[in-house]
Write a protein that binds this DNA or RNA. Structure first.
Lengths: 223, 223
DNA sequence: GGGGTTGATGAGGAACCTCTCATCTTCGTC
DNA sequence: GACGAAGATGAGAGGTTCCTCATCAACCCC
């Protein structure tokens, strides 16, 4: 769909982002340091850049500064350390379009990537659906209400996000790892069985048949 | 803006809804029983109907049935008792466009009223802003993230909703009663000081100057 | 059908959220 | 300045949420 450059030295995060974006149908390139990233950006081969601030050699500010001063208008989403106010403000003043504080959940990054791509493409703000429906389950993303068979159910924040991810990918098998990345974030203990537990909670609330287990693979939401 | 008919026998709820909708700039009429409501609807003088199911004399189902069988296509939002699954399903099958389970928060009803009016008007789904910004405060309604000076802050669900209401009405004085209706719902103890407490929490997080006290009146969010 | 692997689930601790209550502070008025 | 009213706030109860761990059940392969 879009060609996205990830400038990030931590392999774990780079791969977390790249993997997720590829699963969304985007083409990804990873640059592990500033100069490489800068070259690739200036080659003007990408639709969007995800840029880490804490890079070895040449930090993200410098990269940002250079590409803007050389006239590139490619959308840039900056990754900063959590609550590094200074970083964030500088980044936005320095020409970044948006930023994410680490650690972040992939679902959030994805939302911003979509927003920036949409804005860049000048597409008329796809009347994105604020309500997901599948079978008897209805999820209102704006009011955060959920209904099964037209009868309201209560979901906690975690349950809601998990169900949202499921309903955005109906019929697809989602691995525990994918779900953990999307709902819990990349820095969560991958050995935890918290996904299993929350799938259990959801099944109790939306009906056991809504989510089937694919042994050895993960879970699938049935439309 | 729109002419809205409220068919509801409980005065407390009728006035809660009417008051809120008038504050939004709509014209409201209240009918306290089914036959009156039916007459008014058939007079075709309203853009939208909020219809209670539990009415004396002629219940909401009957009203709905009659108006649909007589060809009216006015959008109808039905009010049902909480978790009365049967009611809800019957209502939707009977031609209602949406429903709210009692007790409800006004903010939610408003969201649905807007949606239905928009659909009825065939307006091209105003690219409604999913991000509220005022001064240094930024509130992303979709991802439920909040930022102050570009630095993420954590808000609980209640805090978020309260801040949302404030930011939707910047510069306006909002009474405790209004806030209670919007954020807590109409069946909440009006003598509670919970609004004061939560304003206190918000001030700690977004800065004390963001919300000023208007003595004897309520609170105002400053843009 | 036995054994190992994978998934489901109940129990429970820690943290958090929500609200009430009582007390303290601020404000306006006289 | 003294007083009463209005608002702010700390303490804390009660409930919920989130997660871990241990155990139990289902499944697969041979």
């Amino acid at each position: 769909m879009a060609r996205i450059l990830i400038v990030e030295d931590e392999a774990r995060i780079a791969s977390f982002v790249a993997k997720g974006l590829r699963a969304e149908g985007h083409q990804t390139t990873v640059a592990e340091d500033g100069p490489t990233g800068l070259d690739l950006i200036l080659a003007d081969d990408h639709d969007l850049v995800v840029l880490d601030i804490g890079l070895p050699g040449m930090d993200g500010f410098e990269v940002l500064d250079q590409i803007r001063s050389q006239g590139s208008r490619v959308p840039v989403i900056v990754l900063t350390a959590r609550d590094s106010v200074t970083d964030t403000v500088s980044a936005l003043e320095g020409g970044a379009d948006d930023y994410m504080a680490k650690p972040f959940r992939f679902a959030e990054l994805l939302a911003r990537v979509r927003l920036r791509l949409r804005q860049a493409g000048e597409q008329p703000a796809v009347a994105r659906d604020d309500v997901l429906e599948a079978g008897s389950v209805r999820l209102d993303l704006r009011t955060r209400n959920a209904h099964v068979d037209g009868h309201g159910i209560e979901l906690s924040a975690r349950e809601f996000t998990l169900l949202e991810i499921f309903m955005l990918n109906p019929g697809q098998v989602l691995s525990r790892e994918q779900l953990l990345d999307h709902v819990w974030g990349y820095d969560f203990d991958p050995a935890s069985n918290v996904v299993d537990v929350y799938v259990g909670y959801l099944r109790k609330k939306v009906g056991a048949s809504a989510i089937s287990t694919v042994r050895g693979m993960g879970y699938r939401f049935n439309a």
